[in-house]
Design a protein around this nucleic acid. Structure first.
Lengths: 335, 335
DNA sequence: AAAAAATACGAAAACGTTTGAAATAGCCTA
DNA sequence: TAGGCTATTTCAAACGTTTTCGTATTTTTT
């Protein structure tokens, strides 16, 4: 029963008119008579005509597809950004092509290639943690496909279109909050060195210590690699200090989870000796019996939305008008 | 600098050969001389040639895209199925187009339309909870696009290609487990009536009661609508019974979460009076201090993988050879 | 040396759509 | 009645590939 889908051509033959008339009629082109328009549209409906995207894309040299590259979808933060992207894309007649790099640079490069073959009109990407060179994305831009970076800011390459939350300010806000609660020994589980985002949050942490007159202690800083093992190794080191911290600011809520879990396993009795704040405001916290002290909401939906707004601007606007950075303000959510 | 991407045509002109030769050379066609092959491939690499998917699709009448329609990506269960689908798809040179219906039938229909325009070669879908009519999917199949249903089985329409876990067996397994732990009053938070999956699990629950010589009590069954409010309303009713249940089997782990949360809020003191088992084996449980008793792992990765294996078979195999059902066995995970 | 076979390449059509220019028809005006 | 409008429709090219078939060239066979 493999009926080949009806085309504009068949409609034309059926009605004894030309294909161009049909095409225009379907698009409500002003130069087509009202009666023919109606005849065409009626028949199209009856035949269940559905336009062939490939043909349109080929002819128009435009796919109406936005490519999105994420490190992973398991992290609910990213699925929330997807919602922000999708909603806005749909309103503007774009489809969204969601992919995962699984934190692998190799995979990320493959995805870029796929995007290019698919002729996506633009790309939104949160780079993998392995990504240090941006050649593949530069190639995209050179080919005329604008790229918006979000959430994770590329390091080294300064001038980029990107949108994220203001990690600097947010980290400072968190430290202020902890200090207000009486904490003086505040550790920081820093994000991977490859991400500039890690630096921002780290800077905010330092700034806030300074303005609260707390001496900076390098031993309280641990760089983590976003794995459970990495986080727990860091925690172990912190616990072995003469004076362990009383509070920890984490690069991500997932670190908070791993850290708290580690703590629970280490000393099931005297738990709750350490307070945590991370970035993410994970939806799952709602269900936790024992929550972290607070979390910094990165506004994932908003970030996604802003990213695609910026992307559409780049796609339609004048070619070059410098790069744009958007820094959303994080909200500190107390639990 | 909007350089238009290099095409096969330019390579041809550059090398003073025909486009057909170039095309064949790029595909290692046997009828092309070794030297020309090398010349072509070298130049293609130099020019950064990337094939135009739209043109290929138009010519071949095949998109090499698998469409996936999910209720939501926030539910980590579904993101795990996506991984199973993606991995297998990639190995077979298919791209995956992931979309969310957000449990809305209207949206689901729009997505089907988008899939059809994109000429996807096949569709994998977990229907929205609102879906009771399958006309839109039938239209897809009539148009020659095979559909595989997974996770959520359509009701009413018996003969379908679908893959899921064996809810019947799994529910029974859970009840057996609860009985072994001494429970006799076991409630069941049933899934939405629109899903056959709900029925299966319910049947398994009943069967297991029977074979354990426990009288079936209709008051212990509450139908839920997958919302927090719905679940908590059900829990409230259960708690108000003269003899509340001591254990609850839930259609989904998310119900377990909502139920436990409700319990915690109701009586912070005497919590842990009720045991829970749900479907899902949610990754986040790892981080919970107070976990449910157990969970039924639906093998999401495997389900996704089986779904696409079946889909590819339908796409390539002989047109009609009856419908296929695949029922994976769930695993009971004790926490 | 002629015929046959193998090898390498090219011409052209086709996939379904869009779009500006050109054509046709009908009608009005002078 | 010729000329000029307007309203509607058609022509034809183009987008980038793939693929069938044909042809020219070379090599092998007799």
């Amino acid at each position: 029963m493999k009926r080949s889908a009806p085309t504009i051509k068949e409609i034309a033959k059926n009605l004894n008119i030309s294909v161009s008339t049909v095409s225009k009629a379907l698009h409500n082109h002003p130069s087509i008579g009202l009666t023919t328009k109606e005849r065409v549209q009626k028949l199209a409906r009856e035949l269940n005509y559905v336009p062939n995207q490939a043909a349109i894309q080929l002819r128009k040299q435009k796919s109406s597809i936005i490519g999105v590259i994420l490190p992973t979808l398991i992290d609910q933060f990213f699925t929330l950004t997807v919602n922000g992207i999708e909603d806005y894309a749909l309103k503007n007649n774009y489809n969204v092509f969601i992919t995962q790099s699984h934190e692998s640079l190799t995979r990320e490069k493959e995805l870029v290639d796929i995007m290019q073959r698919a002729q996506v009109d633009g790309v939104i990407v949160a780079v993998s943690k392995e990504t240090t060179s941006y050649d593949h994305f530069n190639a995209l831009e050179k080919a005329g496909i604008p790229v918006v970076y979000f959430v994770r800011q590329p390091k080294g390459v300064m001038l980029r279109n990107w949108v994220s939350c203001n990690g600097n300010e947010a980290a400072a806000k968190a430290v202020d909050f902890l200090v207000a609660q009486g904490h003086r020994r505040i550790a920081h589980l820093k994000g991977p060195d490859s991400l500039l985002t890690s630096e921002h949050r780290y800077e905010g942490y330092k700034d806030a210590l300074l303005r609260n007159n707390i001496a900076y202690n390098a031993d309280l800083i641990k760089v983590c690699d976003l794995t459970k093992a990495g986080t727990q190794k860091a925690m172990k080191e912190l616990l072995q200090m003469d004076q362990p911290p009383t509070a920890v600011l984490c690069f991500k809520d997932y670190m908070v989870l791993d850290a708290m879990q580690f703590l629970r396993k280490q000393s099931p009795t005297n738990k709750k000796k350490m307070e945590f704040i991370g970035f993410g405001n994970l939806p799952m916290f709602e269900y936790f019996d024992e929550k972290p002290l607070a979390s910094l909401d990165e506004r994932p939906y908003k970030i996604g939305e802003q990213a695609i707004v910026l992307l559409l601007k780049l796609m339609n606007g004048p070619k070059e008008e410098g790069y744009q950075n958007i820094n959303l303000e994080c909200e500190l959510i107390e639990y």
